[in-house]
Amino acid sequence: MTTEQFLLRGWTWGGCSLPMGAAVLVCYLVAFGFQRRFSCFAAALGLTLLTLRSPINSLADGYLFSAHMLQHLILLLIVPALAMLSLPRSLSLAMRPRVLGHPLFGWIAGVGAMWLWHAPALCNAAVSSRSVHALQTVSLLAMGGLFWRQILAPRESERLVPPSAILYLFSACVTCSILGIIVTFSPVEVCSIYSAPPIDRLGLLQFVRAGWGMTPERDQQVGGLLMWVPMCLIYLSAIVVQIARWFAATEGPLAEKL
């Protein structure tokens, strides 16, 4: 098999993600109609389906830890952020009880999702069991939503002010980096199922190992590095946006007081 052949054949069309995606699309259109922000929603939906249906998923399904990390990254950090941006500005995301709206809760959700799903037992279970994998996908999206709500909530008043937001994003970045560093340099396997897959479902093992040179050690390194560097760059981009928001603000409720 060559890389091109794999990229053509690696798509999967079964499963419930397509009908669910369609259902979410209908819900969105019914609730908010077709407006400017729809592009963000389309991007979020498209990315989700791409992550779950494209060759990335075939690789993540028992072959490459790094592909599975890429899925995490997209589902936890990119898709929920886009989904938040797709909501109309007037929508309130206030939550009951109030504790759910506390920044610490959002932070724990966002950072905890990463740490939790990389506990060796859970990481292996998510690969070997369909239902755990589905649970993982949903929980990543949900926890990502809780995390980004603090930064990108549609209503300005429900967002953190820039200095707090920077602190929030930076501490999340550091905490994920630490896990990334551990995964990158760990002499032991984090997700052992990838180094010795029980079944070679798509007949890709030889191709991935020899053709791409992705040995289990290198695979884990790439996974760790994805979590360490690109993930931090996503947080950093969000921080840059917060800096822009901080300096761009011209006036406000306090203006007349000073």
Binding site: V161, P162, P163, S164, W246, A249, T250, E251, G252, P253, L254, A255, K257, L258
Partner: peptide, 9 residues
């Protein structure tokens, strides 16, 4: 330079 955020003051 206006003041918008409470954090500024």
């Amino acid at each position: 330079v206006g003041t918008k955020w409470r954090a500024e003051v």
